[in-house]
Design a protein around this nucleic acid. Structure first.
Lengths: 192, 192
DNA sequence: CGCCGGTGAGACAAAGATGTCTCATCTGGG
DNA sequence: CCCAGATGAGACATCTTTGTCTCACCGGCG
């Protein structure tokens, strides 16, 4: 049994590997294990020592995305204050994870038969609950279902992440664009 | 040289094949040529006789998507009347193509090096022009760029298509949900 | 100094997808 | 009736990716 100290050559930083993989797979969702390994600066053999296979890697990314979403939800305090402000805090908190979420969001579309990770259900519920609270308080319109608002939030986060990646939107405008469109829409307000 | 009449056994309906492929690939973007062929009710050999390879098939789907987008834009008359009404007509006209567009939208993310089809640029321009017209007329707010509104429209169409496919949103609500969220946002209007 | 744990490089077979080919079959038209 | 044209089924080689394995290397630790 080891003594929990640092190994000799330079241990693989599991978190760094996951983040490199997320960054690459967001741009090229069909990247091979070899490309993922190169992107992380390690060999394919080492990558395979830490993640049994491509499935295991994707599942690890999914767990990371779920954890970051939960953390963002916790940080956003969705039960405090006006619901609109809570949505703003949520989008701000989730921005660093947007690219990873964009990858997972599209990747999940092909989990046809298999049941999706239970963590997503919980996150969906927490976000939908926030929108429902805003409807109950009279802040949000009631003719758009919480489920759709939740789905739309995911879609806008993905669109925003890709638009930033391709240079069509400035990174600094990311949060503003998503927040304002989701809450206020494109129409000009006649009064506030 | 043939006489342009119908062949003998039962000619392959190219349009039907493309639509079957679009429906399948929207749900499972990694489907194999064999799965695509089965979904269309033809053999892999025949599929390969009509589309040289997977690339050719995807490019044909891209052309179909572009053609349908152009047709939807023409039908929506984006230069007539209030810009908001034109956006409503556009979303209504593009609804039948939403699933195909959702597939192409995510697929295009991995056209990293290669230049994307010029047709998309033209469509992007036409949509952005519509939003710009709405801003100039005072209908739309000017703090959301036309490029972002265009991107958001794609994202909402994709989210809506998936939400319908997975049963999270009723098909009949598709147009309403997207139109209202894009134009009006989630916040309740204090007055109209 | 020598051992031990972790890594990189590369070989290797297995699995899956693709592209091509052949052959039998079927049907409408001459 | 017979043929031309198009399809379906299947065999086949090829390519890519994957998963596993071996071997050499390196650096801290005893």
């Amino acid at each position: 049994m080891s003594h929990l100290g640092y190994p000799c050559v330079m241990p693989v930083d599991r978190d760094h590997v996951l983040r490199s993989a997320a960054a690459l797979l967001t741009r090229k969702s069909t990247a091979t294990m070899d490309e993922v390994a190169r992107a992380a600066g390690i060999s394919r053999a080492t990558l395979h020592r830490h993640f049994a296979g491509r499935d295991a890697l994707v599942r690890a990314l999914e767990s990371l995305g779920i954890a970051e979403c939960e953390a963002a939800l916790d940080a956003a305090r969705p039960d405090e204050g006006p619901a609109a402000d809570a949505v703003r805090r949520l989008i701000l908190a989730v921005e660093p994870s947007a690219a990873l979420l964009a990858f997972l969001y599209t990747e999940n579309q092909l989990f046809e038969g298999e049941q999706q990770h239970a963590g997503w259900t919980r996150i969906d519920d927490r976000i939908a609950t926030l929108f429902r609270r805003g409807q109950a308080s009279g802040e949000f319109r009631i003719d758009l279902t919480p489920a759709w608002l939740t789905e739309a939030l995911y879609g806008l986060l993905a669109s925003g992440a890709w638009a930033v990646l391709e240079g069509r939107v400035a990174p600094k405008d990311f949060t503003f664009m998503i927040t304002e469109l989701l809450l206020g829409g494109a129409l000009r307000r006649t009064n506030q």
